[in-house]
Each structure stands twice: as C-alpha cells, then as structure tokens.
Amino acid sequence: MPRFLFILITGVLFMGVFSTSGESVSANELKNKDRQQTLTIAHRGASGYAPENTMAAFEKSVDMKAEMFELDVQMSKDGELVVIHDTTVDRTTNGSGQVKDFTYEELRQLDAGSWFSEEFAGEKIPTLGEVLDAYKGRSGILIELKSPSLYPGIEQKVAAALVARNMHKPENDKIIVQSFDHESMKTFHSILPSMPVGVLLGYSEEGVSNEQLANFSSYAEYFNPNKAMITGDLVNRIHEFGMKTHPYTVRDQESANFLLSVGVDGIITDFPDYVDPHKG
C-alpha cells in the first residue's frame, strides 16, 4: 500500500474514533445536565424521614439538599394560615376535629410529631409565616392551598403573606403556589399575576387533553399530575404548551428513575435521595 494512502486511511479512522468518542461525551454531558436540572421537591418536607409539614421535616429537606420543599396551607378558626395536610388534625396530631374549628392557639397546643416517632415529640403545627421567615433564601417552597373552598379569602391571605416578605417576585421560580382547585388558582393568579402557579391533577384514565393543557397554560406555569399519568408524550405536550411539570408523589426508586428518564422538570417525593443519591 502506498504510504500516502496508508496515512489517509489511518487519519480517517482516527477522526472516526475521535468523533464517536466526542459524541459519547456530549451525550453523557447532556444526560448529566438534564439530571441536574430536575428539581428535587421534598413532599411535605422530607416526610420519609421526619413528620410531615413540620419544621423538622423542612429542615431535613434543606439538610438533604433538596432544591424545594412542598407544604400544605389551611386556615384556623381565627384566620391564621397554618401548615397541615388533612382537613382534620386526627392523623398527624394528638387531637381530633376539623382544622377550621380550632383557633391558632389551640392548634399550637397539639403534638404534631409523636405520631411519626418519639424522637419528634412536641413538634408543632407551624404557620405559613414562620416557614417563609425561616426558609426565605434557604430553599424553594411549593405552597399548596389545601381545600381552599373551605377557607374563603385564603388566596388573598397567602398573597399578602408573600408580598409582606417581598417574596411575590421570586427569581427562578423559588416560590410556586399550586392547588387541585383550579378556580382557586385562577383567583390567585388574578391577585398576584407575577407569581408562578401550578395546577394539580389526580389520576385520570382519560389522561389530559391538549384543550385542557391550553386552558391551564392561560394562567398556570406548571401542570403537576399524579406520577401514574406521566409518559414521555405527556411531558413533551406539557412543554409544548410552555409549562413545566412536577409530578407527585414518589415513594420508590423505580418511579424516580422513570420520571428522570422522561425528562420531568421536578419530582415531588417523600425521599429526596431517591431523585439524587447525593441528597442522602
């Protein structure tokens, strides 16, 4: 073989190997970049490790380096914004009855930690204001308005709490307000159009239509469905309508892996380390 032809063939082979290697590196870099962009959102705080919706759970979320934590807001009998999931206090405290029938001081007397573990005995039901003050600048917060139809005016009260702390114009969507009650989110959007809003949806066998997504996108920046609804196609459609998606609630590693693989924007989970092992 002539020397010049040998050199030419060798060069072509070398460039092919280099090109293939370069493509592989780029693909890995892209995958890692996408994974880094998937937010870890600690559900009711790191509720797999501490009693849900308590300061202990929110602190654990920060300790585990979750980018955000989610919490639930309701109102006491005397109009205080309180952080608790159920509309009754029975499951997560030593009390019994409807949240709306207790004054703030009565709710503060309840033990919201012992049900989870004696290690957390004496944990209190926090107010939204307490949480905002403690974690402003330390963590993103996903605020869910829980059963807002029970609490007329709750949208205005939450908006006022955010405005009072200059948290109504958050950078990079550090504060998001969401609810299963879509009319409530329309109301909140009308009060504070600068705030990112999320629409929650329970599992539906019918899925979600493009017409629904178009409607949601008219007032919401996020469509956050039950994780069982998520497919690669749905994620793409959500993105096509200019929204992001943070599905809920991951309690196993397999679900976290699947959601990461289809490119969701955030994962709401009881266990932050399921989304990223470095958050353990």
Score class of each variant (00 low, 15 high):
147 S>Y: 13
277 P>W: 07
229 M>L: 12
7 I>N: 07
208 V>A: 09
196 P>M: 01
93 T>P: 10
126 P>V: 08
50 A>K: 05
197 V>G: 12
226 N>K: 11
223 F>N: 08
143 I>G: 05
172 N>H: 11
208 V>W: 04
206 E>I: 04
101 D>P: 03
34 D>W: 12
93 T>D: 07
33 K>H: 15
173 D>T: 03
61 S>T: 02
141 I>S: 00
130 E>T: 03
196 P>W: 10
225 P>S: 06
15 M>I: 15
193 P>D: 10
258 F>Y: 15
238 I>T: 00
11 G>K: 05
69 F>N: 03
237 R>S: 02
97 G>M: 04
66 A>K: 12
161 A>E: 15
267 I>Q: 03
155 E>T: 13
238 I>V: 15
224 N>G: 06
208 V>I: 15
270 D>G: 01
101 D>G: 06
278 H>L: 08
101 D>M: 05
140 G>R: 00
272 P>S: 06
279 K>L: 01
92 T>K: 05
216 F>T: 10
229 M>G: 02
3 R>A: 13
157 K>G: 08
122 G>M: 11
250 V>T: 09
155 E>P: 09
231 T>I: 06
245 T>D: 05
154 I>C: 05
111 D>F: 07
68 M>S: 03
60 K>P: 08
9 I>V: 14
229 M>H: 06
221 E>L: 07
257 N>Q: 13
25 V>I: 15
151 Y>H: 09
137 G>H: 00
233 D>A: 13
97 G>W: 01
16 G>H: 10
50 A>F: 00
12 V>M: 13
271 F>R: 00
186 K>P: 11
224 N>P: 10
274 Y>F: 15
102 F>I: 08
166 N>W: 00
155 E>I: 12
115 W>V: 07
191 I>R: 06
222 Y>I: 08
61 S>K: 00
77 K>H: 09
103 T>E: 03
44 R>A: 12
14 F>I: 15
51 P>K: 13
199 V>S: 11
123 E>P: 03
17 V>H: 11
56 A>E: 06
132 L>C: 06
50 A>Y: 01
156 Q>I: 00
268 I>T: 09
172 N>C: 00
105 E>A: 13
104 Y>H: 14
258 F>N: 11
109 Q>M: 10
200 L>T: 09
192 L>M: 10
128 L>V: 03
260 L>W: 02
241 F>C: 05
213 L>F: 12
127 T>M: 04
29 E>L: 14
258 F>E: 11
25 V>H: 08
21 S>C: 10
33 K>G: 01
279 K>Q: 10
247 P>V: 06
212 Q>T: 11
186 K>D: 04
44 R>N: 11
147 S>G: 03
161 A>L: 06
166 N>D: 13
207 G>P: 03
199 V>C: 11
232 G>T: 15
134 A>S: 14
32 N>T: 14
220 A>K: 08
180 F>D: 06
200 L>A: 05
27 A>W: 13
26 S>D: 14
268 I>P: 06
180 F>C: 08
253 Q>H: 09
63 D>C: 00
69 F>D: 02
37 Q>I: 07
96 S>A: 11
17 V>E: 07
182 H>E: 10
129 G>P: 12
189 H>N: 14
30 L>D: 14
170 P>G: 08
255 S>C: 05
17 V>K: 10
275 V>M: 01
225 P>N: 01
28 N>C: 08
187 T>A: 11
152 P>L: 08
113 G>K: 01
252 D>E: 14
53 N>D: 04
